[in-house]
Design a binder for these strands. Structure first.
Length: 342
DNA sequence: TACTATGATTGAAT
DNA sequence: ATTCAATCATAGTA
């Protein structure tokens, strides 16, 4: 919000300038006397920006305005909200001046000059940090949320990713399925929160943008605000809101990571195989002691029998071989011929 | 609570 | 891709 308020404050400062400089008298004074030093004019302008409205009024129009100037149907009347004389209706002479300003033939030229000046001063400082490329961090977060199934298409992606993760972790199908559904439920919860928050942010962003745009458009009739400037303001608002969005994405990613580590890290959820499975595996191992390396088919068969995955069978045989060898390490290692005889 | 057993992971070697 | 060896992290037990 800082940028916006700063920006508006900046605009406000120059807005005062328009009204005072735009007055028929002062314009006549300045433009009608080309011999006058340009430095003097600038100095005068700078001085005017520091004056309050009342001071400027007192200086430029010490006498009351002619009576025939009274009343206005100028639609821009409300444009400079909050900058009128405090406490109630604007003085008659102020309204006269505004009306005269808006009808003055020099107004469009002055207006565009002021827009240009603003462009060159206020906005050039800001212009340096314009047009940043798509943030790599937000892209990373987007990719991750998509991969985890939090963002993106409704069902398919999420459950597929979760299933793949579960398979990679090698969770056993029996107890794994319970935890898996638990995981999915929690993920869905995160997903729902993420989407509702995202929607809220998007709504707030568009509402705020519309509001600011309307305000600026309205004010651009009485103050030097170019359409380009409004565009810039909108992009600033969008940047601010996207940084909020990034925070949301970041915290969602964190939540998913925590969930994953809690539910899908198989090491944390290690369960011993049931007695029957261990028996089947041991039976195969000891009956093939000469060559305890089951083929792919044998592994599949064993996996089926034990209700575990093939990779779990592989793990078991890997562990078993090494531990068997270690256990008999104290004694001379038995030597088996390739056909299984001692 | 300390210890052992055990399933999973990792990195190197093949 | 598979295996070995070391290691991690938890389950089970005395």
């Amino acid at each position: 919000m800082d940028d916006q308020t700063r920006m508006l404050a900046g605009l406000g400062g120059l807005g005062g300038l328009t009204q005072d400089v735009g007055d028929p008298d002062s314009v006549r004074k300045q433009l009608g006397q080309p011999q006058q030093d340009i430095g003097d004019i600038l100095q005068q302008i700078m001085a005017i920006t520091d004056e309050s409205l009342d001071e400027a009024q007192a200086r430029c129009w010490p006498e009351e305005a002619p009576a025939q100037w009274g009343g206005t149907d100028d639609p821009t009347e409300g444009g400079g909200a909050g900058r009128g004389t405090a406490g109630g209706a604007l003085p008659l002479n102020f309204q006269h001046r505004k009306h005269a300003l808006n009808c003055h033939r020099m107004k469009p030229a002055l207006f565009s000059v002021l827009c240009e000046i603003k462009e060159k001063t206020v906005l050039s400082i800001r212009g340096v940090q314009e047009e940043d490329p798509p943030d790599p961090q937000i892209m990373r977060l987007d990719n991750m949320l998509l991969a985890e199934g939090v963002s993106g298409p409704e069902k398919g992606g999420g459950s597929a990713a979760a299933a793949a993760a579960a398979a990679a972790a090698g969770g056993s199908p029996n107890d794994g399925s319970i935890e898996h559904s638990d995981y999915r439920a929690k993920l869905a919860q995160i997903r729902q929160i993420y989407h509702s928050e995202l929607e809220k942010y998007e709504q707030a962003c568009s509402e705020f943008t519309n509001h600011v745009m309307n305000l600026l458009r309205e004010q651009s009739r009485t103050r030097p605000i170019s359409p380009k400037e409004i565009e810039r303001m909108v992009s600033i608002i969008h940047r601010k809101f996207s940084s909020i969005q990034m925070q949301l994405k970041q915290s969602t990613c964190e939540a998913v990571m925590i969930l994953r580590s809690r539910f899908l890290d198989a090491r944390r959820k290690r369960r011993n195989f049931n007695k029957q499975a261990t028996e089947v595996l041991n039976e195969y191992f000891y009956s093939h002691l000469s060559n305890p390396y089951p083929s792919e088919e044998a592994k599949e068969e064993l996996a089926k029998k034990c209700a575990i995955t093939v990779s779990q069978v592989s793990n078991w045989f890997g562990n078993k071989r090494i531990r068997y060898k270690k256990n008999i390490g104290g004694y001379p290692a038995p030597c088996y011929t390739p056909d299984g005889r001692l």
